[in-house]
Design a protein around this nucleic acid. Structure first.
Lengths: 176, 176
DNA sequence: GGGAGATGATTAACATGTTAAGTAGATTTC
DNA sequence: GAAATCTACTTAACATGTTAATCATCTCCC
């Protein structure tokens, strides 16, 4: 009866002979571990955000804006960890929904200064309690101390890889 | 003077009076930590993949396929941690590039069975050395032991949050 | 003070994430 | 054994990720 392959993690033991030795048990690679962990966390928040008509990134932006009086777009991109083009689109939408306000910087007409609106603050206040409750439950389940330790290790990973970029790009054959 | 706020991390100390107490230092939230850590890692791999005309997700799929003889689409989605629609599109493209092959399952015409082609394997072999070297360098910088510990903690986080959505969403398998 | 280059932001183009709807084939139910 | 239902994808529609190109300003330097 269709004998579905069950929910075998890797699927390789039932699938016949291996073509090659697996380079690294794929699902245990660092990028996959990070991806799955983050998805497990975000899965908790998304329904609540969605109920308020917000995506994860829109929420990040409003959160960041709620902590300052105003901020320039480039710095907002840095804080909310979004690329310029994504931020541009989202700001356009949030401005159309009147959740934020935008004006040109006085000293430099290229720069735009963004701030959250009263309506935006109201939305934040509506979402925050649920969001905080979810975060508290995650902390409770995982353990506050362990969570802090995890974040420290993540920060160390990020910092340790910071200067690694320049080394490999030149090494790769470009063949032009 | 609305002077430029320099590159202050949070931007709040110079930005004037806070509108509210920050709920949680935003950039230190767990989702942000995970996002930044993963991005720091992927930033190392993307240039190499790009040189071979592959995106991160396409590489995940080929990697997963290279470890098995063949696999059904649903299980591939699970292993490569991709949603169905994304996988559908990517498989269509990879098939057009003749990097994979697809056929219908014998026992169930709804199911599709996917396998990597010789050309796909060749591509894997071309990318793997650089990829392995980058992974080795990351491991060296961070420490093999610490890396294993981090992955264990990430796994524990994922596992700990597994049953948490049943609180307000749906109970998938318990009853119906 | 004007042109070359740098910078901040947006737009373009393509790939993926995410949810909803659609389709074809299988399973159940009466 | 045919309709109702379920299942495995696939498409559709919209939002974001990612890189390149564009546009407007700004800075530097002669």
């Amino acid at each position: 009866m269709a004998r579905k392959k069950s929910s075998n993690e890797s699927g390789q033991t039932e699938a016949g002979p291996l073509r090659r030795a697996p380079m690294r048990e794929f699902s245990r690679s660092l990028p996959m571990s990070l991806l799955r962990a983050r998805e497990a966390v975000m899965r908790q928040f998304r329904p609540s955000l969605r109920n308020h008509g917000l995506t994860e990134q829109q929420w990040r932006i409003l959160r960041a804006l709620s902590a300052v009086d105003e901020i320039e777009v480039t710095e907002l991109a840095h804080v909310a960890f979004l690329l310029g083009p994504s931020l541009s689109r989202i700001l356009r939408d949030l401005e159309a929904r009147q959740l934020i306000e935008r004006k040109a910087a006085e000293t430099d007409a290229r720069r735009a200064v963004v701030s959250i609106s009263a309506k935006g603050l109201k939305l934040i206040e509506a979402v925050a309690p649920t969001s905080e409750a979810i975060y508290a439950e995650i902390t409770r389940r995982y353990g506050a101390r362990k969570l802090a330790e995890l974040q420290e290790m993540l920060g160390a990973l990020e910092a340790g890889l910071a200067g690694m970029n320049s080394a490999d790009e030149a090494e790769l054959e470009a063949d032009e």
